[in-house]
Design a protein around this nucleic acid. Structure first.
Lengths: 232, 232
DNA sequence: CAAAGATAATGACATATATCAATATATCGG
DNA sequence: CCGATATATTGATATATGTCATTATCTTTG
């Protein structure tokens, strides 16, 4: 689907591709459609920054986006890689109206922005949508708990294994996959220095668990990688 | 307030002490009141366990509870210390109906259990309550992000500082405070071994930042502790 | 009150991981 | 196509943190 058809069909195009709008009726979709602003981001461009006011909810329709917390000493922690069609909204919406993490396009991306007044009124008036939203938030929360365990209780090989399995299963959905994430990004996903990330990748390569060539990855032994993830 | 008045007044007693029920009308409160089961837990008793079905929402009316993820090698990560009147409910409610963390009383505690059908119907029928709940969930989520940064980007002194400040500001609300948490618990809150936690506490004591005597803590130099928290 | 068990504290040591410095490789603008 | 710049890789070294063993202290209970 090219940009033109995307423009023509608006939210209905996304409704077909995503579950997040499935419980909205046509009137409600039209309501969003009317308000939405479509924005194109180039790879590497910041979409929103931690600490700035959060005035819109954002729906990613093309490309890929990393969300990350900016910590101390210029170190980031990547929370998730978002792919279309999925919305990106932080906890600030119902708390302090601020962004608590940053979002950056890692590929050329297209996102739709809708003001929060519209979003919140949908939540208030459509209990099914509210429940669906709560489900999304909950799944995100469950994933965060897994991330907690991975980051705090596993050693580096286990954490890199988790990142590779996440990319295979949740982001690219294919086994040989090419990523636009840098080694620094992989390090920021696993809470270690980029040098350490590189070293572990090399070890996995030497042991025949994965094949790496620049940004092309192939997991040769999924079972072994799962075991490394399990044993920490 | 003793147990007897607690029993007599039911949910209305809690309404006065907690913000979480403030947007429920009397009919709705009565609805909960009718369904609720009051349970007493002794210190050290498990309230619910990670991996078991999540069939109720739980409201803590007396005592203190730790929620924690059970990770690998019998290592736990404490997520929060809950005090009354606050509910304890996990993301499983709107996802897979399972508990994703465990809850244990760290003091003698009293909790009310209400089936999720009742809870969910309140969320569906009262948008104010839904928004309030979303706000609670959001604040929890924001705290989790801070926890991520503390646990993954700070060294041990910074993490122990965060734990001490958390106990002072969020749990006990007093400066000299006595805790029922063991050293192992403090270690599980800061993602380190209990030996390391003990060592850092001793360093803080030697430097005159805190006074420790068994389970009695006093933060003598809050500014310094804040600085340690900041610099990692 | 004494014995037993749990919890806390301390020291010696092993090791996982970060840091720093040097080199290699890829990427991009002219 | 080439120099410039960013990214990736590798090795040597420093350091933060965990593990293990030992002793001390507190708590419980008969």
């Amino acid at each position: 689907m090219n940009q033109y058809t995307q423009y023509i069909k608006g939210c209905n195009a996304c409704k077909d591709k995503a579950d997040i709008f499935s419980c909205l009726c046509q009137t409600e979709l039209d309501q969003i459609d009317e308000k939405r602003i479509e924005v194109h981001f180039k790879a590497g461009e910041l979409i929103f920054k931690q600490g700035t006011p959060n005035m819109h909810f954002l729906c990613l329709t093309q490309g890929k986006v990393k969300t990350y917390i900016e910590g101390y000493n210029d170190k980031n922690l990547i929370l998730s890689i978002v792919k279309p069609v999925e919305y990106i909204l932080g906890p600030g919406i119902y708390a302090d109206q601020m962004h608590h993490f940053s979002a950056m396009a890692i590929e050329d991306s297209v996102a739709c922005l809708v003001d929060l007044v519209t979003f919140k009124s949908l939540i208030r008036n459509n209990p099914d949508f509210a429940e669906d939203f709560l489900k999304k938030v909950s799944l995100q929360s469950i994933y965060n708990y897994e991330l907690f365990i991975s980051l705090t209780q596993k050693q580096m090989p286990g954490r890199i294994a988790d990142v590779l399995l996440y990319l295979k299963d949740k982001v690219y959905d294919t086994n040989p996959f090419r990523t636009s994430l840098s080694r620094q990004d992989l390090a920021d996903m696993s809470g270690m220095s980029k040098e350490s990330a590189i070293r572990i990748l090399r070890e996995f390569k030497d042991e025949g668990i994965i094949q790496v060539n620049g940004n092309d990855f192939e997991i040769l032994n999924v079972d072994h990688l799962n075991k490394i993830s399990q044993t920490g």
